[in-house]
Design a protein around this nucleic acid. Structure first.
Length: 498
RNA sequence: GGGCCACUAGCUCAAUUGGCAGAGCAUCGGACUUUUAAUCCGCUGGUUCAGGGUUCGAGUCCCUGGUGGCCCA
């Protein structure tokens, strides 16, 4: 670390409080991309960014200025650049504000001839190798502020993520959906089968749960008359970390009154095809070296059919429990005594059939037993009008015709409580206020939840969710205080008992 | 939770059979008026993840722990 390096520069000027720019690297390129070698344009521009390459050349110096749009060469001369000696002493990574003339060098490289410059911030820490960057994944995620400068794919992927979310928002708003915000603190965790994070509100002296899904609040809003709503919701699930799981992740959930699950299928496939076209210009993309055809329509296949196909014999919700258990044993699936046929069928599906699907498929007809918020299938007893979209072997979304009947919903909740008593820590609890809302009447409604992180993984060809999350959850670093003492414990304001 | 692998300078990586811890880049000093990861000369820079063990001698072998990656549950 080089502390206070710029104190030794012969003419240190104070770091300004603001710096006006009127150009970016990309703007200069697009406007002057086709200049002949040796051109001088007379056009003066002001831009700012980090110095990422530097080449001293005696009475000349070259550099590369990087901003959020890209990079462009800086050209400094002893005659025309103020404080030329100091310019040559800048470190890779220093932030600069530059005023200069757009020109090309003798070799034809588009450049900014530096006519004035100022340091906007010095880097006290050396930047990573200018060619190799950072390869250690842990360092990349922990020091994303460095990674974004030295790993071009990271910058592009995370920029694409922002773009995807923006496109989704616009696409839904164009279809009459309104965006809402519902509570993150839930008194009762609900809306999904997952273990929550628990926290505590001191003034209310009450435990709260970070939401595992916004579903029940959004359906309350449909009861309240918001006919088309969506929320881009950060949700929190207290489970393991893997290439496909981050404890906090982003879902988009939407609800549409007077619609059913078939409307949700159309909506998903059209929206995803739209996103692929906007991002890639085509609905046929490549993911992890394999083609992925996102063109509408996607295949539809009942869950029981896919299981039957995978295990080579016909099974369904009416297959005897003993036989389903035997099949689970044969396919190395753990089961519990309280599992009914629906749960056994789902476990078999997840073990044998889900991962082998590559092209998009709507897996339809989920058992009532494992779908406590979905409406019973209009034709098939024991089934619900629920589907998941599987793309590249992974769940992309979950959707259904919403369960409307408060009496049925209460029974489903109570069945969940029995599962919890049996030891299933992911089972739901009874939410009386939600039942009260249903008693006021929820109209026929289609609901849908999409995992944004996984969607962005598909659209950016990312192998791990950590590559599409700016700051993925990591174990805390062993930190030290300034004097090498262990860092002070965080004071939570919690009163401790004597 | 289980298995396998990795961890060496700020970054990227070497180090033969267990035998003086090295290079490139960055940093720092110097040369250079058209460079393109510039080039050239020089100087710095190490708790080899931590602790223990074996040994005349450990980056290397053994044990325990840490962090990360991949796979499985």
């Amino acid at each position: 670390m080089t502390a206070g390096r710029l104190e030794y520069v012969s003419d240190p000027r104070p770091v300004p409080y603001r710096f006006d720019t009127d150009a970016t690297a990309a703007l200069v390129r697009s406007e002057f991309g086709e200049l002949e070698p040796g051109s001088e344009t007379g056009r003066i521009v002001r831009l700012a960014g980090r110095l990422m390459l530097r080449r001293g050349q005696g009475k000349l110096a070259f550099g590369q200025l990087a901003d959020s749009s890209g990079r462009i060469q800086l050209f400094a001369t002893a005659n025309e650049t103020p404080n030329f000696e100091d310019f040559g002493r800048l470190s890779l990574g220093d932030w600069l504000g530059v005023t200069g003339e757009v020109m090309t060098t003798r070799k034809g490289e588009l450049s900014i001839k530096v006519l004035d410059w100022t340091v906007l911030a010095e880097t006290r820490r050396p930047f990573p190798d200018k060619w190799h960057g950072i390869t250690d994944p842990d360092t990349r995620y922990r020091q994303r502020y460095v990674d974004l400068w030295v790993t071009e794919e990271a910058r592009q992927t995370l920029t694409t993520r922002s773009r995807v979310i923006s496109l989704i928002r616009r696409w839904l708003e164009d279809r009459g959906f309104i965006e809402v915000e519902t509570p993150v603190f839930h008194p009762i965790p609900g809306g999904a089968l997952a273990r929550p994070f628990v926290t505590h509100h001191n003034a209310l002296d009450q435990d709260m749960f970070l939401r595992i899904a916004p579903e029940l609040y959004l359906k309350r809003l449909v009861v309240g008359g918001f006919e088309k709503v969506f929320e881009i919701a950060r949700v929190f699930r207290n489970e393991g970390i893997s290439p496909r799981h981050n404890p906090e992740f982003t879902m988009i959930e939407l609800y549409q009154a007077y619609a059913d699950w078939t409307d949700m299928m159309s909506l998903v496939e059209e929206m995803v095809a739209h996103l692929a076209t906007e991002i890639h210009g085509t609905t046929t993309i490549s993911y992890q070296g394999r083609d992925l055809d996102l063109s509408v329509p996607w295949r539809r296949a009942p869950l029981a059919d896919l299981v039957s196909e995978a295990i080579g014999e016909r099974v369904g919700i009416d297959t005897p429990v003993d036989h389903l258990r035997a099949l689970c044993d044969r396919h190395d699936v753990d089961w519990k005594d309280y599992y009914g046929p629906g749960k056994l069928l789902l476990e078999l599906y997840e073990k044998t059939a889900e991962g082998v699907q590559w092209q998009p498929v709507f897996v339809t007809e989920y058992p009532v037993e494992v779908s406590p918020l979905a409406r019973p299938h209009r034709d098939l007893p024991g089934m619900t009008e629920r589907f998941e979209a599987i793309v590249a072997g992974r769940e992309l979304c979950n959707a259904f015709s919403e369960l409307l009947d408060p009496d049925d919903q209460r029974e489903r909740f109570e069945s969940q409580v029995r599962e919890r008593d049996n030891g299933d820590e992911e089972a739901m609890a009874v939410d009386d206020d939600y039942l009260r809302a249903l008693e006021y009447g929820l109209p026929p409604t289609g609901g849908l939840g999409i995992g944004i992180d996984r969607l962005v993984m598909l659209l950016t060809d990312s192998a791990t969710i950590r590559d599409v999350v700016l700051f993925p959850t990591l174990r805390p670093e062993q930190t030290e205080g300034r004097d090498g003492e262990p860092a002070a414990e965080l004071d939570t304001g919690e009163e401790t008992l004597p």
